[in-house]
Design a protein around this nucleic acid. Structure first.
Lengths: 223, 223
DNA sequence: CCATAATATGACCAGGCGGTCACATTATGA
DNA sequence: TCATAATGTGACCGCCTGGTCATATTATGG
């Protein structure tokens, strides 16, 4: 999640920030709607009212444009998560989990189309450098929760009959799946997460974290 | 999950079972690899060594072929789940959850490509009758666990501070996400579920169910 | 003002798509 | 045997794709 995946051409860098942003928006929107392979450069230039030749002055090809989009996505994710846990380094394990979940929701609310791009990448083949892209996002989550779980385990805050890495998997799976449900109505299990008010959403999150807490804490400490 | 989504043409029904199956296999494989929109009928007929005209004698169009594939998928899912819980109607709530999870794993092992088709449908737009297709599978799960959770709740086997429908969501989310991780290496959270021996898989499942059990049971009954 | 460099343009290309249809082949049954 | 029905075939159609490139337009700076 460090270096950039791709460099746009100098011509793109020379553009005004407004124009760069409008191009980025159009590209994100198209990739979000159709995934990588079915996204159409013709559609993108049509929306923007520019010629196809111009787009190819900004990016070498479809892949470079897509990677540029994904670069912005990972940067945004980083910002949201870091902001959500800023200054709470010594918080309870499950409080942090709750904050990361809220950061995920805030991100989806702020950038619903970026999240769709990510989901499409997860389940589409023939996406350029797919493994690398997915790893950048998923490793961010795992490397974040891993040490946190290790520390909590060392402090006796997690049940000792389940290894820390399994705890991380379960935590990551629940959070990830909750966000999937929030972004994809079909996956919300009838909970109608999508159209939910912030207050009711908080309730759902509380329930989930409460279950994780009770389920993952050493016996006797539950609730 | 009851009536068929589509009827193949009579010409297809008249085919020998072997030929019908080989056509179905080729179609499943193509849809699993590319999703609906990017799947190519030209590829399918090329693999089969038949002419495109023949395929159009069997099915009205691409959509009908795809719906036929999905019909078989839902039937298979039904069989697997029903077989896994046969005669265990009065079992413990979490024992049933475990059985359903094992049924899901058995299904993916037996029909990995069918499961890929399903995952693609979940995250692809412009899939014909997508909502209906997804609902058929997901309602099957929710309608199955719903009454089970209600009964367990009535018997005081579930913590009373979380409504039954949230319990169902959490259960469904965990099982669903576990299967996603089993089918998609990127989502297994470093657990390497995919290449796992049956015994180690059982361990992972046990851990997960144990957490759910402890987290969802009334306090004091943990473990 | 003008030469040069930078940028914008869209017709065009080869290739793939879902779908059609006139025709060839095979099966049927009187 | 032979007319009829059923099935198989692949060239072809219009459309769309990512990508190219000769040409037109605009910006730059001496």
């Amino acid at each position: 999640m460090d270096t950039l995946l791709v460099q746009p051409k100098q011509t793109f860098v020379n553009l005004s920030p407004e124009k760069r942003e409008s191009i980025l928006r159009a590209a994100v929107s198209e990739f979000a709607e159709h995934g990588y392979q079915r996204a159409s450069l013709n559609n993108i230039v049509k929306r923007l009212g520019i010629s196809k030749g111009s787009l190819y002055q900004y990016f070498d090809n479809k892949e470079a444009l897509f990677l540029h989009v994904f670069d912005h996505f990972t940067q945004q994710v980083k910002h949201y998560v870091k902001a959500s846990v800023a200054g709470n380094g010594r918080d309870d394990f499950f409080v942090v989990a709750r904050q990361v979940l809220l950061a995920g929701i805030a991100f989806i609310d702020g950038h619903p189309e970026y999240f769709q791009v990510y989901l499409k990448v997860l389940f589409e083949r023939d996406v350029p450098r797919r493994e690398e892209l997915v790893a950048r996002v998923r490793l961010f989550s795992l490397e974040y929760f891993g040490p946190l779980a290790d520390r909590a385990m060392g402090q006796g805050l997690l049940r000792s009959d389940i290894p820390a890495h399994k705890v991380v998997f379960i935590l990551d799976a629940m959070l990830d799946r909750f966000l999937q449900g929030y972004a994809q109505p079909y996956l919300d299990g009838g909970l109608a997460l999508a159209g939910m008010t912030a207050g009711r959403l908080d309730d759902e999150i509380d329930s989930m974290v409460a279950v994780l807490r009770t389920g993952l804490q050493p016996s006797g400490n539950g609730e």
